[in-house]
Design a protein around this nucleic acid. Structure first.
Lengths: 167, 167
DNA sequence: CCAAATTATTTTAAGCATAAAATATTTCCT
DNA sequence: AGGAAATATTTTATGCTTAAAATAATTTGG
């Protein structure tokens, strides 16, 4: 018959638990390092090349897929940021002429945001560079391992989401 | 003889290129989503449980491994943040009694930061919770896939670093 | 020796981020 | 109808973050 250590233990012993803690911490630190590294470089290039920021780009990216615009309240959900955060960002995008913000006739609490022609043009130009920058930054990572990594990250995201759902 | 599409192409054709762009963008978006999700939850718990922030915790984490303290200028390098960023964070940690900041006698430009006994005590208490939170958030991800994911992320980080080195 | 370059750190200006409170509007309920 | 709860958005207070300029001390090179 199998020994306890060979079966799937219901509760782990001290050493196993410690080892798993270390592995989890290492995953987190590496995840953070990769993201920080890439994000910093993308932010720098957005700034230098387009005098633009990533949060502004992210808003435009959401609106680019919505020809008829979006209810303002949809943005914080999709971008996973707080609502108050978006107010000044949307303000400035409106002031710069990239998007419009029009109150709904049906519900005066609600506003509809929609990209302008100018906004779409600007976005597409930046999106092209964004893709190229990413390609440049990830060029040394073997192409045949992307799908595997994507799968792992999808599962990780799902696992974290589930864990957050529980309480 | 092998056809062109079966060999390793020097330059990719349009469709391959597009497909790789998409894979790269997907890796980036998932990386960002995982990090944002975990970081947000950790930040929230640091705030709720300890009235503390992650950047402050990160500084203490660096100093915890340095019994004799660190040259202040070492912190921005290790934490991958700008120097100016640390000034107010260090200021507050000093004011709160978690660390000390003493000018070097050899070079009056330089300062040495070092954790206090109180700081170490507080840090260890928080670090314990931090590990447990991470374990909770990652509990649903299969333990036997951590090492593989860590390897992929290490390689990704290396690839990005190399790409940043080039110009 | 001393002026110029370098190095360490802080300050400033602008923007992002959150949580919590405030405001305005609509819906729900009796 | 009319007050209470719910919803959408903004405001406020606080803190992180960067880039660039400023300050201060040291090192270097004639």
């Amino acid at each position: 018959m199998a020994l306890a250590k060979e079966s799937t233990p219901v509760s782990k012993n001290g050493a196993d638990q410690e080892a798993e803690y270390r592995a989890q911490t290492r995953v987190w630190l590496r995840l953070l390092a990769c993201t920080t590294l890439i994000e910093g470089e993308l932010r720098r290039r957005f700034r230098d090349e387009f005098d633009f920021t990533m949060p502004r780009f992210d808003v435009l990216a959401q609106l680019d897929r919505e020809p008829s615009g979006l209810v303002l309240g949809e943005l914080p959900k999709r971008l996973m940021v707080s609502a108050g955060n978006l107010t000044p960002i949307v303000d400035r995008l409106v002031a710069d002429g990239y998007i419009t913000r029009t109150p709904s006739n049906l519900d005066r609490r609600v506003q509809i945001v929609c990209m302008t022609v100018e906004g779409r043009k600007t976005f597409r130009r930046m999106a092209k560079s964004h893709g190229a920058w990413l390609a440049e930054l990830l060029a040394d990572f073997p192409a045949d391992r992307f799908d595997g990594l994507i799968g792992e990250l999808d599962d990780l995201k799902g696992a974290v989401r589930d864990a957050l759902q529980k309480p």
